[in-house]
Design a protein around this nucleic acid. Structure first.
Length: 309
DNA sequence: TGACGGTACCGTCAGAGGAT
DNA sequence: ATCCTCTGACGGTACCGTCA
């Protein structure tokens, strides 16, 4: 069996087990977090109460199953597929239970390298295929930062001096991984192109370029020899030819994929945090349970002292 | 040492649900 | 109605430990 086949086999078995659990004790199948936490609870403390999310999910599952007599797995899956986000769950938990930390709303700067965040409050952060960060601030300022370099050293601020308010939809910055001549290019508002320059030639006056070991960037007019494979940012209204439409679609797809990539990362981070919180809660409840059992034993001894016969 | 199992992580897709 | 965000599911890869 191939690795993937094996993995799929394991996953299938896991799902079957989850379904069994669901039938036995009201667990929710198809939910990794639920199965993980349920498994954790079974391992550590079978007496501990289900989480708030589990309670909600169980209640929903029971209601739907009882009222409709759901047997069709597809329908069941549809009913059970959606659950509150980890942030919501944990925040609910935190309001219910003292000591459970809230999942903080991740601020814009949080996921950004310090040498970028320290310079300005960016509105958009992008990471290039070479690991560099591009931050676009409110005023149109573009910051390009190389991770690994410390502090401000790795940052070049390219401040755009947009005259007046930018046109609607013109805040798109496009990044082309590498053009034919091996340079990196970014498209910025105002139909200009930011081009990474391999030689450290002097930049035009409207641009601030870093020097030394850091790559330099130039802002050029796109009309000047637009390299192959580069797609210009354009407002949808100006698209006419099928090629332009296709390019726009590609650009949108890339943007969506990039956003989804980041969202998935963030989601996993929250999930890990959520699981950690559940684990710590289990530990606390275990201790509480142990204390209560000891207390009960003590009280039993006091209330019913042994009599010699 | 190579095969294998387990685990962690990532990117992508699909779909639900909220926001506008 | 449309767009956007979030998250489960899936496939892929890398890494580590164990075993023959």
């Amino acid at each position: 069996m191939s690795k993937c086949g094996r993995k799929k086999y394991i996953k299938t078995n896991l799902r079957q087990m989850e379904t069994l659990d669901c039938q036995q004790d009201g667990g929710v199948p198809g939910s990794v977090a639920e199965s993980e936490s349920a498994h954790l609870q079974a391992q550590t403390d079978p007496n501990s109460a289900p989480t708030l999310a589990q309670v909600v999910a169980i209640a929903e599952a029971d209601d739907s199953a009882e009222s409709e007599g759901v047997t069709d797995s597809q329908k069941r899956r549809e009913i059970l597929s959606r659950r509150p986000s980890y942030r919501k769950i944990l925040n609910e938990l935190s309001s219910d239970v003292a000591g459970v930390p809230k999942i903080e709303e991740k601020s814009e700067e949080e996921g950004v390298p310090p040498h970028v965040a320290a310079m300005a409050v960016p509105t958009s952060i992008y990471q290039t295929s070479t690991g560099q960060y591009i931050a676009i601030a409110q005023g149109g300022a573009i910051q390009i930062s190389t991770p690994g370099s410390d502090g401000v050293q790795g940052l070049q601020a390219l401040t755009m001096t947009n005259s007046g308010a930018p046109p609607p939809g013109a805040t798109i910055v496009q990044y082309a991984a590498q053009s034919a001549d091996g340079t990196q290019q970014f498209f910025v508002p105002g139909s200009q192109v930011v081009v990474q320059d391999e030689e450290t030639e002097l930049a035009p006056s409207h641009m601030a370029a870093a020097t030394g070991d850091m790559p330099t960037y130039q802002i050029r007019a796109p009309a000047t020899a637009l390299p192959q494979g580069v797609v210009m940012a354009a407002s949808p209204g100006s698209l006419h030819s099928p090629q332009q439409l296709a390019e726009e679609a590609t650009r949108k797809r890339e943007l969506r994929l990039m956003k989804n990539r980041e969202a998935a990362k963030e989601c996993r981070r929250r999930k890990k945090e959520y699981v950690k919180c559940l684990e710590s809660r289990v530990a606390v409840l275990e201790v509480q349970n142990k204390k209560l059992i000891e207390e009960l034993e003590t009280l039993k001894d006091i209330c019913s002292p042994k009599t010699d016969v």
